[in-house]
């Protein structure tokens, strides 16, 4: 049972990689776009801390670490689950959900893991670099245990986000069109300018 699922997962990721390699230009522009966003975010933090040295007790480097951690969690979530959650509403609307349901495997698993998005993964090293820079400038030393706990908490954060968005995406079964999934994501969590929001 376990072996079968890891086999499917590997196959899904392989397919995603093949897909990504077909549109290499697309991948590069996406990475550039993510980097641009990081630069703008850092500019914003810089602007804030050029006016004040602390925001409710948070220093610039602590704030940077927070921003880096947020980026780490959201990038991992975007790479693993966002595209999949977003696709659920599309599948409901087009009726293609049936093809997922008839397959002889757990359908939540199939829906959650089918695509792996590679461009947000490029953000992970950038996020780690921001966190490391913030820690060094802050002069904080961390132990191995703390790092292990941090990694565990990051994983927990990704899973919480996944559960929320998946839950929200399933409401599309009743509401049919569900543009709210990306709205919820872009406005409430990632705070990025969403390219696909409605009005």
């Amino acid at each position: 049972m376990h072996a079968r699922y890891s086999h499917i997962l590997l196959r899904f990721w392989k397919n995603s990689l093949i897909r990504e390699m077909t549109f290499r230009g697309h991948f590069l522009v996406n990475v550039a776009s993510e980097l641009l966003w990081v630069i703008l975010l850092l500019t914003f933090i810089n602007v804030i801390f050029s006016k004040t040295s602390n925001v409710r007790g948070w220093t610039e480097h602590q704030y940077l670490f927070l921003a880096g951690t947020h980026m780490l969690v959201t990038s991992l979530f975007e790479a693993l689950f966002f595209g999949n959650c977003w696709r659920i509403s599309q599948l409901v609307r087009t009726g293609d959900l049936d093809f997922v349901l008839v397959r002889p495997a757990n359908s939540q698993f199939l829906l959650s893991f089918e695509r792996l998005d590679f461009s947000p993964l490029a953000n992970v090293p950038v996020a780690v670099a921001i966190c490391a820079y913030a820690l060094i400038r802050q002069g904080t030393t961390v132990s191995i245990t703390e790092i292990a706990l941090y990694v565990l908490l990051i994983a927990g954060g990704v899973l919480i986000l996944y559960s929320l968005l998946f839950m929200f995406a399933t409401t599309s079964v009743w509401l049919i069109r569900q543009t709210g999934v990306d709205m919820l994501w872009f406005y409430a969590v990632s705070r990025k300018p969403g390219g696909t929001c409605v009005n």
């Binding site: 230009g25 522009v29 776009s33 703008l40 500019t43 390219g195």
Partner: peptide
């Protein structure tokens, strides 16, 4: 051909 991803860069820049 691939304007979609370019549009994303543009939206990000525009936001700022």
């Amino acid at each position: 051909l691939e304007v979609a991803s370019f549009i994303h860069v543009f939206m990000t820049a525009q936001y700022f």
